[in-house]
């Protein structure tokens, strides 16, 4: 495999510029061989508890997310290859104003992590679904699915109102952001990657190609997010977070920021929230509502899927909406 090219060929990239292309395959192969060969030398140098602990958490996040991302790209490939636009048009109401709540409730049906939802939302948009509707699904799916609600119930025994509050606040967030996207309409700068496989190949090849491309595309951002989240997780002591627990407003804002940076998977964040006993229930609810809707890992993946101009608008709006709807729900129910 490493002998496939003796000379770097030059090719045309997507924008039509000609540029020289190094033998990437050879580069990867050499880099890996060097890494493998030097592992006995470099390994001990890295054998410091902080490096090792970061590595464990980093690898854990990547390993935990990968099956969900695979599930997501499979579903997304199925949507783009198997579902015809006619079928989709029949399921989703024509008027996006109604499509938003339908997408929110449809989120109940995908018991997965947030990583799965990003490629699915992209695929829905490419299939002609209004972006607002697809983004509502993106926000709702990881937050209101049964697996998340059950784990919340387990983490907060004797507090069923927490489960209800989480469900209501998360769904509200998804719907409000969905309608916001609708009102922005074409001013929302979504950049979707072009799919070039659509017409050329057979259905099977198209399916595999789409899934592979989606995965490769999203996984790099997932790794980036995991690196940051692992660093926060390992190096930021929780006691810093605890110091503001007594103040209502600061407590809410701190847990919102904490949810954003630790990027926990939505099925386990309830257990972490339950352990933050110093905080008010409303602040804990904010943690549970912000986390699945937006975190550093998701933001990275959304930059990859929809472009950074879009993410600059979308990310703050989602976080703000999630905080407000959680505070309102908490004030009402908790």
């Amino acid at each position: 495999m490493t002998t496939t090219t003796t000379r770097s060929p030059s090719t045309t990239d997507a924008t039509g510029r000609r540029r020289p292309r190094p033998g990437q395959l050879e580069l990867v192969a050499v880099a890996l061989l060097v890494a493998l060969g030097s592992a006995p030398v470099v390994g001990p140098l890295l054998d410091r508890p902080e490096v090792v602990t970061w590595s464990t958490v980093f690898l854990a996040i990547v390993v935990q997310s990968t099956p969900f991302l695979v599930l997501g790209v499979l579903l997304s490939a199925a949507i783009s290859v198997l579902l015809s636009e006619r079928v989709l048009a029949r399921v989703v109401p024509k008027r996006p104003v109604l499509g938003v709540p339908v997408a929110g409730v449809a989120g109940l049906g995908l018991p997965g992590c947030e990583c799965a939802a990003v490629p699915i939302a992209g695929s829905l948009m490419r299939r002609g679904i209004a972006p607002a509707v697809a983004l509502t699904f993106l926000l709702a799916a990881p937050a209101v699915n049964p697996a998340v609600l059950v784990s919340t119930a387990v983490a907060f025994p004797g507090q069923p109102e927490m489960v209800l509050a989480r469900f209501i606040a998360s769904l509200t967030t998804a719907l409000v952001v969905g309608w916001w996207c609708l009102s922005r309409g074409s001013r929302l700068p979504i950049v979707l990657r072009a799919r070039s496989l659509q017409d050329e190949a057979g259905a099977r090849e198209r399916f595999v190609g789409t899934a592979r491309h989606d995965f490769v595309h999203a996984a790099g951002f997932l790794v980036l997010g995991a690196m940051l989240a692992a660093a926060v997780n390992t190096f930021v002591p929780r006691s810093i977070v605890d110091t503001v627990a007594g103040q209502a407003v600061l407590g809410v804002l701190t847990l919102a920021a904490f949810a954003f940076v630790v990027a926990l998977c939505s099925e386990s964040d309830a257990f972490v929230a339950a352990s933050l006993t110093a905080f008010s229930d409303t602040a804990k609810l904010v943690f549970l509502v912000v986390g699945p809707a937006m975190d550093v890992k998701l933001a990275a993946m959304e930059i990859g899927a929809f472009g950074s101009a879009f993410a600059r608008q979308f990310v703050p709006v989602v976080v703000g909406t999630a905080v407000l709807s959680a505070v309102a729900t908490g004030w009402w129910l908790l």
Binding site: D13, A14, L59, R193, L197, H213, F221, L224, M227
Partner: peptide, 16 residues
């Protein structure tokens, strides 16, 4: 066929 817009961060996939 496949090379469209794969971003630079994809290289991070070696890291795990």
């Amino acid at each position: 066929e496949h090379g469209h817009g794969v971003p630079l961060v994809t290289w991070l996939l070696v890291l795990p």
